[in-house]
Write a protein that binds this DNA or RNA. Structure first.
Lengths: 173, 173
DNA sequence: CATCTCTTTCAGTAATTATCGAAACTTCAA
DNA sequence: TTGAAGTTTCGATAATTACTGAAAGAGATG
């Protein structure tokens, strides 16, 4: 009969491994997703060396991805008194995780698209041929939509948890 | 002085090229995003050969990505009477584009995560150690959130065009 | 049933992205 | 200072993903 501790380890390992696989499908790299999963399910903050050992990865890889997760706001750096080493702990609140991801993705995905669309709209403004006008209209529709999505992201990012959920339910419930 | 047609071509080429670059940042490949941009801004449906020529890509590449876009529901295959060749035309309605993307991403990203989380929840149910309980709670929180997101996606997918957008715009200004 | 037109597949190659491992750098304390 | 402990960088390599080009397949038509 398997002990609870053993079963927990096993389940957790599976979670970490699979979360990594999924990460690759969401466009983030495997290691980053694995580290995130590892830290979300570790009761204590972990050091770079502990992460390296747990996932069997190199120091460079661990370092790069830990720092990237800190940039995303998904991990915090913590220190222990009297120690120089840095430890990392995960944000555990799911709404907060969601907000950080929304914010980062907006910055990376929506903002550049908006710039491009605005530019194409301006360039094609006042065109008189059928093709030119159709192009302008399409750019305008896309711009309006992305602009809308962008605004929504901002709102989500600056809204207290419960409220966001209520609003979402109101819109879609 | 540049003619309107020349300027349109130039702007459109820039749109296609940049949309491609952005595609890579959204986790879809450059060619797929470029083809999508090309067809969204082409007044007529295009054949595989026309796409190949316009983007300077191979037949295999064009074929694969056209079919992938059809799978996503972002392109339709159309035929001309008396011709055997297939032509492709883009869905132009932004709300419809959004719905197709949401639906596809839910299937690829949310559903597998849900399976994993449900499984981890079940496995850790009833654990008694502090670590086991914490793990179970974290899995539960994540599961609840992803489940909620999944439901939201379904709602979006079955909502009439424009209606939600208008309501949301009203609420968000 | 031979051939023409168009579509699909796929093995090989190119391009991109992730990872390693070691060296360089930084900081602190003896 | 010097060295120990820890962090960061980076060139080389591995792994993954995208693309090509050619060949095979699938219908239609005479």
């Amino acid at each position: 009969m398997k002990g609870e501790a053993a079963k927990l380890n096993e389940t957790r390992d599976r979670f970490v491994a699979q979360w990594g696989v999924m990460g690759t499908q969401w466009g983030i790299n495997r290691t980053m997703a694995q580290i995130h999963a590892l830290l979300m399910t570790n009761p204590e903050p972990m050091s770079t060396d502990e992460v390296m050992e747990e996932l069997h990865i190199s120091r460079g890889n661990a370092h790069t991805n830990l720092k990237e997760l800190v940039n995303w706001g998904l991990l915090r750096i913590v220190t222990r008194k009297g120690e120089r080493k840095e430890y990392f702990e995960a944000e555990l609140d799911v709404w907060e995780i969601f907000r950080r991801i929304v914010k980062e993705r907006k910055r990376r995905e929506l903002d550049p698209a908006l710039d491009l669309l605005e530019d194409c709209m301006t360039e094609s403004k006042g065109m008189t041929t059928a093709g030119g006008r159709a192009f302008h209209e399409q750019m305008k529709s896309l711009e309006e939509f992305v602009h809308f999505a962008s605004k929504m992201s901002d709102r989500v990012g600056s809204m207290p948890h419960g409220k966001t959920m209520k609003l979402a339910l109101k819109l879609f419930g």
